[in-house]
């Protein structure tokens, strides 16, 4: 009986633990969505917004694009800001800004997090 039990229990527990990992991962690093958005915006391998824009307390920002400040004032319509990050060449074909959504540099979820963060600046 003991053997049978362990034979049943072990795979079950293993099974559950493998499925539990994603939930743990999703709740672990991010403290809240705004901080996640900021982390994505600052990450050199994700948004890397600081390459061109001065933002908040971001270190060593570039100056190829305008500083990102007073964003809620500049973009009263959230969708306009989102569209700008999705593909800025729609509004200005000559812009150097990468089309983060169109070229799948950020996922839809990441893009929304970044937009929400930017609107707090």
């Amino acid at each position: 009986m003991k053997k049978l039990l362990s034979g049943l229990l072990l795979p079950c527990l293993l099974f559950i633990s493998t499925f539990a990992i994603p939930t743990v991962r999703a709740e672990n690093p991010p403290t809240n969505d705004l901080e996640r958005g900021k982390a994505i915006a600052f990450d050199r391998n994700a948004g890397n917004c600081l390459a061109c824009h001065a933002i908040d307390d971001g270190e060593l920002p570039g100056n190829s694009g305008p500083p990102l400040m007073q964003m809620a004032l500049r973009f009263p319509d959230r969708d306009v800001l989102r569209a700008q990050i999705w593909d800025a060449t729609v509004r200005n074909p000559n812009t150097v800004m990468p089309p983060y959504g169109k070229h799948k540099i950020l996922s839809d979820e990441e893009l929304d997090l970044v937009v929400d963060y930017l609107l707090t600046l």
Binding site: A51, G62, P98, K104
Partner: peptide, 20 residues
């Protein structure tokens, strides 16, 4: 994927900074 031409950085943005 980042959609840059050589000229994007070296004509349009020449003299500006990327990071430092």
């Amino acid at each position: 994927q980042l959609n840059f031409a050589c000229s994007s950085c070296h004509v349009q943005l020449a003299g500006k900074r990327l990071r430092s």
